[in-house]
């Protein structure tokens, strides 16, 4: 491989770091602001204009906070856990296109690469919870593992419906197939199931079992102090970005906003609308109980997603234009 491609790719990877950092900063501020306004209070106000510098203050605080490694913890995995949670989410960003073909690696199997990376995240969470040698975090880790694997199946099956309709696993092709009618219109059940499972995969409220503050002190990151906790938060926000990006690409038409000309602006707009919706869920709903959550996946979402796949299959076989 020649040096020019390598340099371009290196710049692209650094650009991904910028996207990740920008997203974490914006979402940290926006989440506190939006939840504040849902509670009829202003949220951060005094750190810069309307608290816009709040994420920087938090970041500086975390960077200069003591980093405790408990004596009984498994030191190697205590250090590696946050990395295992952040890096796959970061790698998933590499295949997500911002405009037609404009991704670090627009691979032909992009959809499944993103799912593969999302599958590694539970490993990170489990390592984070297990390595602290704390009872709360171990329970949080196991719950997290059970939750993430349960909600992955309906998510994958719904994504199969999209593959069936688009006939390609390249994310650019999937989006271009929606230039006039979005899959949200063609497969509304799929969108509903995908949205629920995506929220569960992000560990966001109402599915934030791993970090159930009222039950398990702070869940998986009970023993995590300072920047390591910040990294776990970063992994969470990046997972949220990847999940909402997938929703936008698969169902909401990506850069298409028919009849207007396609533009990355629409994609970014939709991305932050979806993320705001997820924050709205957090401001409104209570946390589910762990058994209800598991049963919801296995008894309702999986049969429903299989039915959705069959419905899409029948429609695609009957109507050629579907």
């Amino acid at each position: 491989m020649n040096a020019r491609i390598f340099l371009t790719q290196l710049l692209g990877a650094l650009g991904l770091i910028v996207i990740l950092g920008f997203n974490v900063i914006i979402m940290d501020w926006w989440e506190r602001k939006l939840v504040g306004h849902i509670h009829r209070r202003p949220g951060p106000m005094h750190t810069g204009w309307h608290g816009i510098l709040q994420p920087f203050a938090d970041m500086l605080k975390m960077l200069s906070k003591e980093d405790i490694v408990p004596d009984r913890a498994d030191r190697l995995f205590f250090w590696l856990g946050p990395a295992v949670a952040v890096v796959p989410a970061f790698m998933a960003l590499a295949v997500l296109p911002l405009a037609p073909g404009f991704a670090l690696a627009d691979i032909g199997n992009g959809l499944f690469f993103v799912f593969a990376m999302q599958t590694i995240m539970p490993f990170g969470y489990t390592l984070i919870g297990w390595s602290g040698h704390n009872k709360w975090s171990l329970v949080g880790a196991l719950r997290s593992a059970a939750q993430l694997i349960s909600y992955e199946i309906p998510m994958l099956i719904v994504a199969l419906g999209i593959l069936l309709a688009a006939g390609s696993a390249r994310l650019t092709d999937i989006v271009n197939a929606q230039s006039t009618v979005w899959y949200a219109v063609k497969q509304p059940i799929g969108l509903l199931i995908f949205f629920i499972t995506a929220v569960a995969e992000m560990n966001r409220s109402p599915f934030d079992m791993p970090e159930a503050e009222s039950e398990l002190v702070a869940g998986i990151h009970t023993e995590y102090a300072g920047m390591k906790f910040g990294l776990v938060m970063m992994a969470e926000y990046t997972a949220m970005l990847v999940g909402s990006w997938m929703i936008v690409l698969l169902f909401l038409g990506g850069w298409h906003l028919w009849p207007l000309p396609p533009s990355p602006v629409w994609l970014v707009l939709k991305l932050y609308l979806v993320q705001s919706g997820i924050i709205w869920l957090r401001g409104t709903y209570l946390r589910l109980r762990v058994d209800t959550m598991m049963e919801m996946s296995w008894k309702y979402l999986i049969p429903a997603s299989l039915a959705n796949l069959m419905l899409v299959g029948v429609l695609a076989t009957t109507f050629k234009g579907f």
Partner: peptide
């Protein structure tokens, strides 16, 4: 191969980012 290299590179840069933060701490 170029795509594969890009993905590996992204992983390495991500790891470097995490460890740079550890270094700053």
């Amino acid at each position: 191969y170029a795509n594969l290299a890009a993905l590996v590179l992204a992983g390495l840069v991500g790891l470097a980012f995490v460890f740079a933060l550890y270094g700053a701490v």
